[in-house]
């Protein structure tokens, strides 16, 4: 059990009930350039401004109970991320969407939400796969070539040391693309195994793709999935 889960557990015990608003959100523009913790703070402040009855963790330093399905890296847009916010009392999902959107800065928007009464599993633990889009000149063929390889060895920093890893098993399938400059693919994601898009870009460059193009690439996370590939299910239903 990690620290966050421990806090959750403490809070669960202290409260009779936890009402979660699970929201699908998108981010783009200026808001894509901030890190995971900053994004969390932006949501926290928006929730407080909206006057929503958010639930706070127990302990010396009570924090609003927010859980993201999967952290978003700096510079990555999203069209399909999920955030769970725990409330003290039931909040209607549509009202949640309306009130938080009034307070979120431009570039961040909750698209829709569901109310969940006492979820059994942390949203972090249900994510297994994700799909991404990379926009850069000539990237579609480069990604297809990568899928054609048997193994893709790349260096990865792990506990301060550089280790060589094969990321090919993390790739699931390329998705249909309408342009030579726009690749879409599905890969494993979540707490068990995860392929970050910047690691994929690095592998692309090591395979000969232009560094300059990679630096300018626009990366968008399209969707998150639960279940076991190919039997995928939508995150909103996994409680």
């Amino acid at each position: 059990m990690n620290a966050q889960e421990q806090l959750r557990e403490m809070t669960r015990k202290a409260h009779q009930h936890e009402y979660v608003c699970r929201g699908l959100f998108e981010r783009k523009g200026a808001l894509s350039y901030i890190g995971h913790l900053d994004l969390k703070a932006v949501f926290e402040r928006a929730l407080r401004r909206a006057g929503l009855p958010i639930l706070y963790s127990q302990g010396f330093n009570p924090r609003p109970m927010l859980v993201f399905a999967l952290p978003l890296g700096v510079g990555i847009n999203t069209e399909g991320d999920w955030l769970d916010v725990s409330m003290e009392v039931p909040v209607d999902a549509d009202e949640y969407v309306r009130r938080i959107n009034e307070e979120l800065p431009d570039g961040l928007r909750v698209i829709r939400a569901v109310s969940i009464d006492e979820p059994k599993n942390s949203i972090m633990s249900v994510v297994t796969c994700a799909s991404y889009r990379i926009e850069a000149k000539g990237v579609t063929q480069a990604v297809l070539d990568l899928f054609g390889q048997k193994e893709i060895i790349t260096k990865k920093k792990s506990k301060g040391r550089e280790v060589e890893v094969d990321i090919r098993p993390l790739l699931i399938k390329p998705l249909t693309s309408s342009s030579p400059d726009c690749a879409e693919y599905m890969c494993y994601a979540g707490s068990k195994q995860n392929l970050r898009p910047d690691v994929l870009l690095k592998a692309l460059c090591e395979a000969g793709f232009s560094r300059a193009e990679a630096d300018e690439a626009v990366i968008t996370r399209l969707e998150l999935y639960g279940g076991e590939y190919p039997d995928l299910s939508a995150i909103e239903g996994l409680t």
């Binding site: 808001l31 350039y33 700096v74 510079g75 800065p105």
Partner: peptide, 13 residues
């Protein structure tokens, strides 16, 4: 390619 790109983009509430 730069540290803390959020510094350069504005877009605050």
């Amino acid at each position: 390619s730069v540290e803390s790109p959020g510094r350069y983009v504005g877009g605050e509430k």
